[in-house]
């Protein structure tokens, strides 16, 4: 029998497929609505409290009071910890990925163990990273550095930008490794062979041919890492974020104020919730804007790289 397009037994009827389309469509619409509601609430409630003064000054007196609230130190703190984290996580993640996918024997138990570890690391709750940072970086590394340096009072052995950024770097390491490995694997064999057949060493081939080819994919890893780290509060709670600081952080061993943590403080510690609400949403708005713009920069760089890779020299 030719198929005339009529519903027949054993095939989904058009009613069933309409139902399928409706369900999936509804689910998609729901997500869009949720996103719109979240963004809408934040923008609507936060916008009135947003001002140039709010984002460009240091809060002088009460930061729960709309008159004196400001978030410049938090913007600086969050930006700095993200950038510092990127500086730590990218080289380590990329080098690890290169080792795993280019040098390590795929069938060795060691490689297998490393891969399992990376997988597990990705599944650890972020508060655990915070505790790890406190225990390892501050109490172990920091205190021992202080002992070695012989300073009186803790210098390294206390929460700081440095330790918070390192904690975040550990947390985002799996993302960077996985993205980089994927990008390395996607590099055409023909390109490697071309380079090796010319008499290039394996290292030359990786550095000059494979890594440049994989750069957009590696940047994707960076973007994911930044996105994940930007809004995280738990890992920096014990490792660097401060409730209040009168001055901006001057060096990596200083503590810092953070947009995410500050949001939490505004939401839970305010003596007058109603009065604080607009600045709470304004702070969230700033955090979202910061995350988006950091991502936008990375995405633009990647797009540019892709274009250059394809077309120009």
């Amino acid at each position: 029998m030719r198929d005339h397009g009529f519903p027949s037994p054993g095939r989904p009827s058009s009613a069933a497929s309409a139902l399928g389309i409706a369900t999936t469509g509804l689910a998609t619409a729901l997500i869009l609505v949720l996103l719109a509601v979240i963004l809408g609430t934040v923008v609507l409630q936060g916008w009135p409290a947003l001002s140039w003064r709010f984002v460009s000054t240091v809060p002088r007196r009460d930061f729960f009071d709309p008159q004196s609230a400001a978030v410049l130190p938090m913007i600086i703190g969050t930006t700095t910890r993200i950038l510092l984290m990127t500086v730590f996580v990218m080289p380590v993640g990329v080098i690890t990925a290169v080792y795993l996918s280019e040098y390590a024997r795929a069938d060795s138990p060691y490689t297998h163990a490393v891969r399992v570890a990376i997988g597990n690391l990705a599944g650890v709750p972020s508060i655990v990273f915070g505790l790890f940072g406190l225990g390892f970086f501050i109490n172990f590394l920091g205190r021992n550095l202080d002992r070695l340096a012989g300073t009186s009072g803790p210098h390294w052995g206390q929460p700081s930008l440095l330790w918070a950024s390192l904690t975040l770097a550990v947390m985002t390491l799996p993302v960077v490794i996985v993205a980089t490995e994927e990008a390395l694997r996607a590099t055409p064999t023909g390109l490697r062979e071309a380079s090796l057949a010319l008499g290039a060493t394996k290292l030359e081939t990786i550095l000059c041919i494979v890594l440049p080819q994989a750069l957009p994919g590696i940047l994707t890893g960076g973007i994911l890492a930044v996105s994940r780290a930007a809004g995280e509060v738990a890992p920096i709670l014990f490792t660097g974020a401060a409730y209040y600081m009168a001055s901006l952080p001057q060096k990596p061993t200083d503590q810092f104020m953070d947009l995410g943590y500050h949001t939490y403080i505004l939401a839970t510690q305010s003596p007058n919730i109603e009065r604080t609400r607009p600045i709470l949403f304004a702070t969230v708005l700033v955090l979202l804007a910061l995350t988006f713009s950091l991502n936008a920069v990375a995405i633009l760089v990647r797009a540019r790289l892709r274009r250059t890779g394809r077309d120009i020299a």
Binding site: P188, A194, S195, T201, A313
Partner: peptide, 30 residues
């Protein structure tokens, strides 16, 4: 050294995604 003396051209052409000049300059540089 062997691969320097024995060059190879592959079935699927595989120029590097760089400039024409750089494709050859890379071979020289290494």
């Amino acid at each position: 050294g062997l691969r320097k003396r024995v060059g190879m051209v592959f079935q699927r052409s595989n120029p590097f995604p760089r400039s024409i000049h750089e494709n050859i300059a890379y071979a020289l540089r290494i």
